[in-house]
């Protein structure tokens, strides 16, 4: 009868109760929506991009503690990074969540996100943790297709 410490670590609850970069943006360069129809989680992701860098991003939405905390951790990990760096960070995170790569191997940018390692043991919750990261990838795709046009 112990609290599932591994899943609900203090750092996760901290991001849940005080999410970083939370809110909307007046004039984002990219706005992308993410939705998880199975559990009803919804996410809006706003990006400000300057040249090759994500200079600011915000998220808004509703969902469980895992999805909200994960989104908050993601914003901290990628703000100020180049698009190539962001892709690498997302790939590292998804590697941990989906392929079971060890959290210790993750770069320092993902320090807080390492705490989501315990979610691996709850297969139905993995998609909660991935919603924001997949939405970010979609936003980058949108940005690239716009650049290419």
């Amino acid at each position: 009868m112990e609290i599932p410490d591994e899943l609900y670590r203090e750092v996760i609850l901290d991001h849940y109760r005080s999410p970083r970069h939370h809110g909307k943006m007046e004039k984002p360069d990219v706005l992308e929506w993410g939705k998880n129809p199975l559990c009803g989680d919804e996410l809006e992701l706003y990006l400000t991009v300057n040249g090759d860098k994500i200079t600011d991003l915000k998220f808004d939405g509703k969902g469980c503690s895992i999805s909200q905390a994960s989104a908050s951790m993601m914003t901290e990990a990628v703000v100020g990074k180049s698009l190539a760096q962001v892709k690498a960070i997302v790939s590292d995170f998804k590697g941990m969540m989906m392929e079971g790569k060890p959290a210790d191997a993750l770069p320092d940018d993902l320090e807080d996100a390492k705490s989501l390692e315990g979610v691996q043991k709850y297969p139905v919750r993995i998609k909660c943790a991935l919603l924001s990261w997949n939405t970010l990838l979609e936003a980058l795709k949108k940005l690239e297709s716009r650049k290419a046009a």
């Binding site: 009868m1 112990e2 609290i3 599932p4 899943l7 609900y8 559990c39 969902g63 469980c64 503690s65 895992i66 709850y122 139905v124 919750r125 909660c128």
Partner: peptide, 13 residues
């Protein structure tokens, strides 16, 4: 408390 968070805590028990 989000239903899925509650469900997971109960599941643990």
């Amino acid at each position: 408390i989000h239903p899925h968070d509650l469900g997971t805590v109960l599941d643990e028990d």
